[in-house]
């Protein structure tokens, strides 16, 4: 899977031999994964297979214990500066939205711009409005997160991440906490990002979406990457026994 010929201006994320344990529990096992720039990767697999842990290692919300993770040419080590640099480049969207409840939508979007990027407030607000318009909720800017529907909150979360001009977006089950009628609006937002060429890693169970958007689908089980393939191949011709079983359960 790792192609040593690719240089750092084509490679967005490179994981080699990554292992992680929670206590004695071996949650990620020998993960090798290279994500090219502009590549859209969907990660799926049964619950507890380590999908979240994998993408959380990419911006160091979880620490890996062995192997190498290089994001945008920066290797993740315990050096705080490398961590900050990587986090500034990788935006993340969580299953539970995780907006800051004490701040308005606009403030949610400007806070990190001002305090991490050092942008003046006026500029930060302009950027925030640009991305709020992009996710089609500019009129909610002065509301508080609790006053929005789940789908709107998740779109704010996406706008908040985009405001930092990330090079990579990480999505951890962005639609799993949403009511069915709101899933579409969030998926449409993500799809439009994909159309613009954003590098993305998306953990999701939305197989229809994966089929349309993904360049590559990665199937995980028990902390390992079991199979990776282009969507058409992945769905029509799964090779591993576990992939077949998983797909037969999840697809109608």
């Amino acid at each position: 899977m790792t192609d040593p010929a690719m240089s750092s201006d084509v490679v967005a994320v490179e994981m080699t031999g990554v292992n992680k344990w929670f206590g004695a529990f071996h949650v990620l096992r020998d993960i090798d994964l290279t994500v090219a720039r502009k590549e859209r990767i969907v990660i799926c697999g049964p619950s507890g297979s380590g999908k979240s842990t994998l993408i959380r290692c990419i911006n160091r919300l979880e620490e890996h214990q062995s192997g190498r993770i290089v994001v945008d040419g920066i290797e993740l080590t315990s050096d705080l500066r490398s961590i900050d640099a990587v986090r500034a480049d990788a935006g993340m969207v969580f299953q539970q939205f995780n907006l800051f409840p004490h701040l308005s939508v606009l403030e949610n979007c400007t806070l990190a711009q001002i305090w991490v990027r050092g942008r003046p407030k006026a500029e930060a607000e302009e950027v925030a409005m640009k991305f709020l318009t992009r996710v089609r909720i500019p009129e909610q800017a002065n509301k508080y997160p609790a006053q929005l529907s789940g789908g709107q909150q998740q779109r704010v979360a996406i706008a908040r991440a985009l405001c930092m001009n990330p090079k990579i977006m990480l999505f951890d089950e962005p639609t799993s906490a949403l009511d069915p009628e709101m899933i579409k609006e969030v998926l449409d937002t993500i799809r439009s990002l994909a159309d613009d060429g954003m590098t993305m890693l998306i953990v999701t169970h939305e197989m229809g979406f994966a089929r349309q958007v993904a360049d590559r689908i990665i199937f995980m089980d028990e902390g390992q990457i079991i199979e990776a393939n282009r969507p058409e191949e992945f769905f029509s011709n799964p090779r591993h026994e576990r992939t077949k079983r998983f797909l037969s359960q999840i697809l109608p």
Binding site: L61, D84, R87, A88, Q96, V116, A161
Partner: peptide, 19 residues
């Protein structure tokens, strides 16, 4: 998760705490 989303945005310890 509030700490996590702050960290994911690149906020350091004191900014996360204070803001």
């Amino acid at each position: 998760h509030q700490y996590e989303s702050a960290a994911a945005l690149g906020l350091g310890y004191w900014k996360t705490m204070g803001l």
